Amino acid sequence: MPSVQRHAITILNEYGEAQSELIGIAVVLTNGKAGTVENVWLDELHGLRISIKGHDGKWPVSTIKFPED
């Protein structure tokens, strides 16, 4: 399998794992908005982006914090 295909498959596998790990998880954004992750997107410019249930917009996954137990 060509190298490019291996890289694409790896990216898609990691994206699938991120979706299954993040969707439905409670998070707090660095701007103070909180809620559960509704969806995850792969953005070619920004990497992973998430949407929070009840809030408009998509945020980089780097802006979330997980609430401490």
Rank of each mutant, 00 (worst) to 15 (best):
K53Q: 14
I50M: 10
S51D: 02
S62I: 13
R6G: 02
Y15L: 08
R49P: 00
S51Y: 06
L42I: 00
P2F: 02
V28W: 04
E68I: 08
G32P: 06
S3F: 09
L42Y: 14
I23Q: 09
L45N: 11
V27E: 04
V27M: 01
A18I: 06
I11F: 03
A8M: 10
L42F: 11
G57R: 06
D56K: 12
Y15Q: 05
L22V: 02
W41S: 02
L45Y: 01
I11S: 05
V40M: 09
E17H: 08
K65C: 07
Y15G: 03
S62E: 14
H46W: 12
L29S: 03
K33C: 00
I9G: 08
N39R: 15
F66C: 08
D56V: 06
D43A: 08
G35I: 01
Q19H: 08
K58A: 10
N13W: 05
G24T: 03
E38T: 00
G32Y: 13
L45I: 01
I23F: 07
V37T: 00
L22Q: 02
I64E: 03
V61C: 08
H7P: 01
Q19K: 15
E21M: 14
G24V: 00
D69F: 11
G32T: 07
I11V: 07
V28I: 14
G32M: 09
L22F: 09
E68M: 07
I25M: 12
K53Y: 06
F66R: 11
H55G: 00
Q19N: 09
L42D: 01
F66E: 15
G32C: 12
E21Q: 15
T30E: 13
F66I: 11
V37G: 02
S62H: 10
E44C: 06
T10V: 03
W59G: 00
T30Q: 13
L42Q: 04
H7G: 07
W41C: 01
G57K: 04
N13T: 01
G16W: 09
G16C: 14
E44F: 05
I9V: 14
K65N: 11
I25S: 11
V61T: 09
L42W: 11
N39V: 00
A8L: 12
Q19T: 00
V28C: 12
Q5K: 13
A8Y: 09
K65M: 08
P2L: 14
T10W: 06
T63E: 15
